[in-house]
């Protein structure tokens, strides 16, 4: 059973329910104001403690705001990059194995000693190509870990409220830094012919 407590605006807050840091801050500030209004000398130590807590909530909120400097897409973009590594290594491994298969086919027309040597080399290539499977599985684990972290950071930013949205842009990259986006993911990459076409029509003076 979740216990309910009465919050200052008359609503209720259930145990286990996420309390937005903005809301907590509002309640705390209101409590400090009300304590000030009491006019008792004994209140001062309590006010000092609450002001200290209030200050740290502000600091924490600002620190959380910097957790996602690249915006909401930073984690998923990193995961995409890692998945692209898996795809790229798979393509490379298949190319290498295709070449080894060609070598084996050619070996069939050679003398026994040469054939044996070429087949042994092809075997080593097949065995070594297993790196793609192993690295792929490792990267997949990293991607899952990133997705888990992303969900936790999302929960924190939701708890921090609108202050995060205002600060989420971080420091804007310089014009040159903003150009450093390569290598592109396959689905976003332009082909060489598209680049050639673009190159022909771009006016360098404009």
């Amino acid at each position: 059973m979740n216990a309910a407590i009465i919050v200052p605006d008359g609503g209720t807050q259930r145990a286990g329910q996420t309390l937005r840091i903005d809301d907590a801050h509002i309640y705390l500030d209101r409590l400090i104001r009300e304590l000030h209004a009491l006019g008792s000398e004994k209140k001062q130590p309590l006010v000092s403690v609450l002001e200290y807590v209030s200050f740290h909530i502000r600091m924490t909120r600002e620190e959380i705001a910097t957790l996602k400097p690249g915006g909401a897409s930073a984690f998923s973009s990193t995961a995409d990059e890692l998945e692209e590594i898996v795809n790229e290594t798979a393509r490379a491994a298949n190319e290498i194995m295709g070449a080894a298969e060609c070598v084996e086919a050619v070996a069939m027309g050679t003398d026994p000693k040469t054939r044996e040597a070429l087949q042994a080399a092809a075997t080593r290539i097949y065995e070594a190509s297993a790196f793609q499977d192993i690295t792929g599985q490792r990267i997949t684990k990293v991607v899952r870990a990133l997705q888990h972290i992303e969900s936790r950071v999302d929960a924190l930013t939701r708890a921090c409220g609108d202050a995060i949205a205002a600060s989420n842009g971080g420091t804007a990259p310089s014009r040159d830094e903003a150009l450093l986006n390569g290598p592109q993911l396959a689905r976003n990459a332009a082909t060489q012919s598209e680049i050639d076409s673009l190159f022909d029509v771009v006016d360098p003076t404009s």
């Binding site: 798979a90 491994a93 298949n94 194995m97 080894a100 298969e101 087949q119 092809a122 075997t123 097949y126 065995e127 190509s129 297993a130 793609q132 499977d133 792929g136």
Partner: peptide
């Protein structure tokens, strides 16, 4: 689930 590994296995089995 990795096509690379299927190809490796198929090639080694063929050998």
């Amino acid at each position: 689930d990795y096509n690379t590994m299927l190809r490796i296995l198929r090639n080694l089995l063929r050998q």
